[in-house]
Design a protein around this nucleic acid. Structure first.
Lengths: 190, 190
DNA sequence: CAGAACGTTCGGAAAGTTCTGAACGTATAT
DNA sequence: ATATACGTTCAGAACTTTCCGAACGTTCTG
């Protein structure tokens, strides 16, 4: 079967330049957010493609191995950043993907699955340690009791920070949740 | 000169456990945020220390090389997460550090110097590319014009996302700025 | 049923990051 | 002045992450 053109070395160099610039930017961004660079590039390729892409498309487009493409797609899938789509006429079991176009859903997924969990874990650790300190307090020497008190102070200080972070994340999630299809409103904190 | 005790193998094992657990948690957190693990550990050590620490203290406390300690301190200094303090009686040019205890200032620094800049750079790239596309539009073939139009659509869609991120960061900064010494209020987005 | 078409997994290669020990420079103390 | 104490820099060691090619298993096609 014949395939629609995506973009290739025959395309207008200006289009190509924009295409590559976007993929590069998304690559750096992904890197910055703790994903691999190709993760961002693949997402970009899907985003700028007029049709769904299969693994071999990405191999050709980004000059990566099929193994890499496969692993990356799974990662993106788990993040809810791409979806598998069915393409009519596409033979057999070839999988085609497109970028999840609802960015707000992506934000929700990522914030929920990553940032939220980490903040919660941190809070749990601090809570745990504070409990342990309070428990041990009576049995400590004078000097150690001073140290323990200092720890409690600093830990509780830090807990404030993380509770704040938690509130921020929750607020953003709520905000995004309320306007799932368009640009959320400007926040007003008062 | 004699030094105040910080914490060591002679200390109560429960104190030691809490100390190490906190450092471990901060290490992971730092890692997650794109800093090295020791960056977080060093900050933790300062945070839980009853007195300012010098490089050699950290070498002993964290079992790292002095070179590593030196580099890490500079990094933390640039982030505004530690400050150099003068210690009376401390010989000559030995440098002592303590953790910046105003976490809200730290947030401000990090958000401003990192997240903000990246979001702005991303927006700039997209803006740039959109301009290029509009410029080239007339001279493209029919088919390429379709592609360019698709690009413009998707890019503008993505710009919405980043503008949102920018607004969030600004809102958080403002929020923190208004309450520099305590827990900021719970946000209300309506 | 044989062969091609695909996606996935795995061991190890390549690239990138973090850490160290040694050399160095400069300030302090004797 | 000389020696010591201290922080910094640098080349490469150690470790981590990312990536690839090859082998494999499964589904389709003829």
């Amino acid at each position: 079967m014949t395939e629609q053109p995506v973009i290739n070395t025959q395309s207008d160099p200006r289009l190509l330049a924009v295409h590559d610039s976007m993929l590069d930017g998304l690559g750096q961004l992904a890197d910055y957010f703790g994903f691999s660079k190709v993760t961002g590039q693949v997402f970009g390729a899907l985003l700028l493609s007029p049709r769904p892409l299969c693994l071999d498309d990405m191999v050709e487009l980004l000059d990566i191995s099929k193994a890499n493409a496969s692993m990356t797609m799974r990662a993106l899938g788990n993040l809810g950043m791409v979806r598998e789509v069915w393409v009519r006429g596409a033979s057999g079991r070839r999988k085609y993907y497109e970028a999840e176009s609802n960015f707000w859903r992506i934000i929700t997924n990522v914030l929920k699955s990553r940032e939220m969990r980490d903040v919660e874990r941190a809070l749990h650790v601090m809570d745990d340690n504070a409990k342990k300190l309070n428990h041990a307090m009576d049995e400590l020497s004078e000097e150690e009791r001073h140290l323990a008190t200092l720890y409690l102070e600093r830990i509780s200080h830090m807990q404030g920070l993380f509770q704040f972070a938690q509130l921020m994340i929750e607020a953003i999630l709520e905000q995004v949740h309320d306007s799932p299809d368009e640009m959320p409103a400007i926040p007003n904190w008062d």
